[in-house]
Simulated scan of single mutants.
Amino acid sequence: MSADQRRAELSRFLRTRRLRLSPELAGLRNVDLSRRRTKGLRREEVAALAGISLPWYTQLEQGRDIQVSDQVLDSLARVLRLDADERKHLFFLAGSRRDDAMPADEREDVPASLRYMLDQFSALPAYICDEKMNVLAWNRLAEAVFGPFESTHPYGRNLVWRMFMMPSHRSMYLEWESLAKTMLGHFRPKYARHLENPWYKDFVAALSAGSPEFADWWDDYEVHCSYRHPYVMEHPEAGRLHLDPQIMQIDEQELYLTVFTPDLHDGSIQRLAMLNERDGSKVRS
């Protein structure tokens, strides 16, 4: 990501966080809300609460080329009530650390050893994704639970695309909105780290055009660096399944293994085992 791209993304992030915070939550008293034209805090209020000058904060939010200390970032994170994921994202956008991950088009395909590992999770759904959240390889039970991953559509294997754009897929989830927002918040930092890659902008544009929910929530700028939302679904063959994703980064090239474990007490184990009785558990890609 270039320095200009990083500053522009920082500008958008700071503005969304400022506008979502009410004066009451920020600790400001005796504020006349009737005279406000916009929601959230004003720039001068953020600057005063953080102990920095208004011109300096204005330049920061406008994406100007200025140096930011960790002390100032700590103050902004405190004032804007950022959670741990948002604070991490703020420091990333405000810093100059280069992302050394190898681009996807320079990587080899999923190694045979990882495909073999997937094959060993015969009783649990499992798949491997890249940094774009594209499913690269999966076991038979993952396909039985989540539907076919083979697709002629350029985004057909992408988890975010499937969640927002495939009616048969999204209709299975009993907590679809909460799950979709969490998944989108997990995708957002990945997008920010790869702004120089046109794939991300094309992907976001296609989703924004096709899904009103995505377009609205993308502007909210939610950030979730961790992704542990349970999958509660009404499977067309197995019935109610409650699955918890366990996500592990498996190498330095941004490959991620996700293994889904069933709830131990609500019958999900037995219903998942029913699906597992189908022949085969080979990895496909």
Rank of each mutant, 00 (worst) to 15 (best):
E150G: 14
L54M: 12
L90P: 01
A205I: 12
Y155I: 04
M274F: 13
H229V: 05
H186W: 01
K201G: 14
W161R: 05
D4E: 13
S2Q: 15
S96N: 15
E237W: 07
D105C: 05
W176D: 03
I66L: 02
R81H: 01
S53H: 11
A206F: 06
M274N: 14
S2M: 11
R64V: 10
E9P: 12
P125L: 11
E131G: 10
L80P: 00
R271C: 08
T38A: 09
M248D: 09
S53V: 11
A47N: 01
R271E: 08
A84Y: 10
A192I: 05
L60K: 12
Q270L: 14
H242G: 00
T16G: 01
S168D: 08
M133F: 05
P55L: 00
E9S: 06
T258Y: 02
F149K: 14
L90T: 08
R18P: 05
N139P: 05
R29K: 15
W56N: 08
P154A: 03
V160D: 02
R228P: 00
Y200L: 05
I250M: 11
V259F: 03
L195P: 00
Y256N: 10
M274Q: 15
L10S: 11
P230S: 03
R188Y: 08
L60D: 11
S2T: 15
R115A: 05
R271W: 00
L255I: 02
R193C: 06
H235T: 12
A273G: 09
L136H: 02
M248R: 02
D74P: 06
R278P: 08
S75D: 00
Q120W: 11
K132Q: 02
S75V: 10
L33I: 15
